[in-house]
Design a protein around this nucleic acid. Structure first.
Lengths: 219, 219
DNA sequence: TAGCAAGCGGACCGGGCGGTCAGGTTCCTG
DNA sequence: CAGGAACCTGACCGCCCGGTCCGCTTGCTA
């Protein structure tokens, strides 16, 4: 693990790139064979680098989350809090819109993977920091949290998803509607409290890792 | 088709009920065998009533769309246009939130099914009528359409989906945020025009029914 | 450069899927 | 009540998937 032969490292890179591209283009249901073929390597090699398909998905998914979390953290230095928050949300939405697998991954069993959970925690932390700054500046309403921001950004992309094939930029429309919903001017009381960071953890635990006595069927 | 033997009709009913329940509980990926087992009939019987699994999905999906379209049409008689629109959206969101397959069906190849397309057209018609009434009453901003309403309602549910297992009513929060986004007070110009009814048709055509010379891969 | 371990590849396995079919069963008609 | 058509069933087929394995290749090291 610490040291890797030259060809092995090269193949690993090829594999990860191929998997990212294939997942982005066709979703998580692409076969391992297809990924291997795109990478120009054998199927067995895939399983040498990742013990299971799920771990491969988790590795790529968590990379994307980390990247987005980095973007968010960097934007904490931006002068305008409201603009920074919007840029963060736009970056996240763009990531999802360009990648068919991203939204699937959120709902899949990959959530239970420790790597993914850590990255998600970082992402939510960044979002909350950005939201707090915007809230303090009076740019957004008091009753929305960083968790809301993350979920809303996903919702905007999903709203446009049914027409993604025919009008690719539509998600920007719904993202802007989400911006408007965050405006203090919009201001109507919400019927359900914001989710907490603990909720995300609990949801991840409930998926595919029944540690306690839970009974939700993973389908 | 016009006449059906008594036991055949009974089995058909059992099958449809079982399929609805199974799809709702576990999503579209349940096997035909599983559905047949729940209905208490043989697998072959399923394929006697529906030539393919996709047609079965389409039948059930279009039923739900019809039902929602009916709700929308009925709400056109309600006195308060804004309240009527909100009730319509709530009904639609509730339908999706209680049914794991609904959102999947929107994105699946079922869209190409003529039954589904007709039902979708009716649904969009009802949504547009409700939106027009609310717009005329000044309850919602001028730049959102019935298509927007339908898509937004889906987006709200999807936004809450990652935490659906741990806080089942969360979608109401994001639906209310969507309501706030529709408020004239929110009022910022949107970067992309509203989709048209023709866009929905085009998207349906593009999925799984390459009639012309299109080349989108159906994954 | 020689030798060996790390790495590679693709045939192979078990399993589950959608869909088919031959043969027994049930309902309707006359 | 009898005959035949409509219907039901579950064993069966071909396919594709994730994952395994072993004989061969390749890059490192002494």
């Amino acid at each position: 693990m610490t040291k890797l032969r030259a060809d092995a490292a090269r193949n690993r890179r090829l594999l990860i790139d191929a998997a990212s591209a294939e997942f982005a283009a066709h979703g998580l249901e692409v076969s391992v064979a297809q990924i291997a073929h795109r990478a120009g390597i054998g199927k067995g090699t895939v399983f040498r680098h990742f013990p299971t398909k799920e771990r491969l998905m988790a590795a790529i998914f968590s990379d994307q989350l980390e990247q987005l979390a980095d973007t968010g953290t960097a934007l904490l230095e931006a002068p305008d809090p409201w603009r920074a928050l919007r840029e963060f949300m736009t970056a996240g939405a763009e990531l999802q819109a360009d990648d068919r697998s991203f939204c699937q991954a959120v709902a899949s069993a990959s959530r239970a993977d420790p790597e993914v959970r850590a990255a998600m925690a970082r992402l939510i932390g960044a979002a909350e920091a950005l939201a707090a700054r915007a809230r303090a500046a009076g740019a957004i309403r008091e009753d929305v949290s960083g968790q809301d921001v993350v979920l809303l950004l996903g919702g905007a992309v999903q709203a446009a998803a049914p027409l993604a094939g025919v009008s690719p930029g539509l998600w920007r429309r719904y993202l802007h509607l989400a911006f408007d919903a965050l405006t203090p001017a919009a201001a109507h009381p919400l019927p359900v409290p914001s989710p907490t960071a603990a909720d995300f953890t609990a949801a991840a635990e409930a998926t595919g890792a029944p540690s306690g006595g839970g009974a939700p069927r993973p389908a």
